[in-house]
Amino acid sequence: MNKTINRPFFQITKDGMLAAIDKMLQDYSVAALTEKNKNVVFDFVKSSAEISNVYKPTILSPKKFFFPQEEVILEYTAEGKVTAIIESKPMVLFGIRPCDINAKKVMDEAFAESNGDANYLSKIENSVIIGIDCKQVCDEDSFCYRVNSQEVTTGCDILLYDLGEKYIFEYKNEKGREFAIKYFGSQGSDHGAYDKFLKEKESNFGKTEGPFKDLEYLPGVFEHTKDHPIWEEEAKRCLSCGSCIMVCPTCYCFDVADELALNLKEGQRLRRWDACMLSDFANVATGESFRKEVSNRIRHRMNRKFNFLMRKHHQPACVGCGRCVRACLADISPKEIVEIITGEKERE
């Protein structure tokens, strides 16, 4: 948090924002929180009127816009002409929350590191990400405050603060600046409004349990608890259904498959979301699995979030959005697992 730095803040009325979104729609596809089947989801809207005013955590995270559930990566013909397919369109992602912004940071780094994945990165490059800060915890399943992911440093281009009758906003980079000037205008706001927002936010989050015990040392803690009984205990309940992974904003494992058109003249190579909780994820060609036991798969997944990837990204790869907790019929919660692993809590 760099709250002491004298950052410039701007403001725009709520009506002004709606008009700005309608203006954006002429130049961009705009995805925002919208109602679908009595639920809210992030989806493309045709007008600002379709955007939901009330935030409720969504089932899927906005990662689906940059890392689609299924994506063509190659097209080819029976004659052997192969083309790499890298698709992106100018889009604005409006109103994503700090947890998802922090998750996007992990995804960005994962797809950029060592071999820059053009399919993912070109979509990011072609997008403007407008975040909205959260003033309080959204529901009892989210635990962003335990991993400090209610705080946004980078990961979006513009960050909005909802002050009821208006937004104040700041831009996070040059792309955000140019975009904001074009669509939101540049009416300045004094720091007082931001300070007031921040004060309320700090007061609300001050009532939570705060970060995990030993948060920054979790990789080491997880490294030394590979034989902890918790893995077997959770495995008894776990259905291995993979729901936790579908809804996770930082899971990016995928499967690759070829599909030939029925006419057998042309085909595609696709990548699709995959899930390390599924029983055959770590199978090799001969059918042997290197993570056959459910307990090992849960351990692997949790270590990805709090050990392996945390070492790489210098933040937990779990952002506490709570989606997996809401999705899990067996009530398996990363929050509870960490609390038990660190000795912060005992199992009830």
């Binding site: 590191e113 060592s114 071999n115 690759v256 692997h300």
Partner: peptide
């Protein structure tokens, strides 16, 4: 070691052995 790599470039996750 043998693993079933789907991408070969450290993304798809299939060949992971712990971290």
């Amino acid at each position: 070691l043998e693993r079933r790599m789907k991408c070969g470039i450290g993304k798809c996750g299939h060949c992971q052995m712990e971290g």
